[in-house]
């Protein structure tokens, strides 16, 4: 599907912490990038030899600054290639393609106060949010937990910028943890809570919030799924007549793109619903990994989100 893409040059690469680098992108043609909203992400396309890798990264720069976009990339322990490529291959001056910003983690602007809970590299969407809250004079509190200080990105910077009243940091190696119960029970009416980080943190915070009587509408999480690996399989495409092999460490979407098939996508993480695809035939099991389809839709076997979901069995045909 056609995207609003921008050709950008890597203006700087800055080591931020162990295994975390910050990249700044500026448009090759020197024009302004779009102003965006806190919590937005972009999809970065990387040409790695004959393979095009596409990863979604939260924007962490000031949303009101159109001169450049900044992202921070943690080198994933089980990288599927994208974060390793960013860390090891991408240099200042390189040209990459990025998508226009998309926001699946927008603040609820009705909030009287915003509680932000970040774990590790999950800090990035909150950096753009906080810039926007600060400018708009909206009350917020950041609670930011890292495993060890050396891996904590922007710990001191954030305290310096927003003050220790608004920014609380926790280092698990040093025995400090987010006092969730205390945070959840002392907020004024109309407070919204946002969490981004490892799955365990997200699940823990959402559960604790519900247990403390928070309405679901006031609890927000950035779920970015990485396409999980699995057994190789092939998909038949009923419209183009092609058959495409999907490798162990590849999503259906990635395999289609590599085969030159145009498929729709936005988040590439199972959240937005854009890549919903009809299943024409299925002799086997659809392995639904997305957060978009309802349980009934998953059970119906008629739809699949090709960015994260897989298949095991004899034969599957998609309406593409």
């Amino acid at each position: 599907m056609s995207q609003t893409d921008f050709s950008v040059r890597v203006a700087s690469v800055t080591p931020v912490a162990e295994t975390i680098k910050r990249f700044r992108f500026e448009r090759v043609d020197g024009e302004a990038l779009p102003i965006f909203s806190g919590g937005a992400h972009i999809v970065v396309s990387m040409k790695d030899g004959s393979v095009t890798r596409r990863n979604a990264y939260s924007l962490m720069s000031d949303p009101a600054d159109p001169s450049g976009y900044e992202i921070s990339v943690a080198k994933a322990e089980e990288s599927r290639g994208g974060s390793v490529f960013m860390h090891e291959k991408v240099k200042v001056g390189d040209v990459l393609t990025i998508s226009a910003p998309v926001n699946l983690f927008s603040p609820d602007w009705r909030g009287r106060k915003h509680i932000l809970i970040a774990g590790g590299i999950g800090i990035t969407p909150f950096m753009s949010m906080m810039a926007q809250f600060d400018k708009a004079g909206v009350a917020f509190e950041l609670h930011y937990a890292v495993r060890e200080r050396a891996r904590g990105a922007y710990l001191e910077d954030l305290v310096a910028r927003y003050g220790s009243a608004r920014v609380k940091t926790y280092v698990s190696e040093e025995g400090t943890r987010i006092p969730l119960e205390d945070i959840l029970t002392r907020q004024p009416l109309g407070t919204h809570l946002y969490v981004c980080g490892p799955d365990r943190l997200i699940a823990g915070v959402l559960d604790a919030g519900r247990d403390a009587g928070w309405p679901d509408y006031n609890l927000h999480a950035e779920h970015f799924l990485t396409p999980p690996p699995g057994k190789p399989f092939s998909v038949e495409l009923t419209r183009s007549g092609k058959t495409v092999a999907v490798g162990e460490h590849e999503s259906i979407l990635e395999a289609l793109e590599a085969a030159g098939v145009d498929a729709p996508y936005l988040c590439r993480g199972g959240a937005c619903g854009q890549c919903e695809t009809g299943v024409a035939a299925c002799e086997g099991i659809l392995l639904h990994n997305d957060l978009f389809l309802s349980d009934d839709e998953k059970a119906s076997g008629k739809k699949i989100m090709i960015c994260v979901s897989r298949f095991e069995g004899q034969r599957v045909a998609l309406e593409l």
């Binding site: 609003t4 779009p34 226009a100 936005l266």
Partner: peptide, 11 residues
């Protein structure tokens, strides 16, 4: 609704 929720900047 699904279409609108995914509308993109600049499009």
């Amino acid at each position: 609704l699904k279409f609108l929720l995914n509308m993109q900047l600049g499009k």
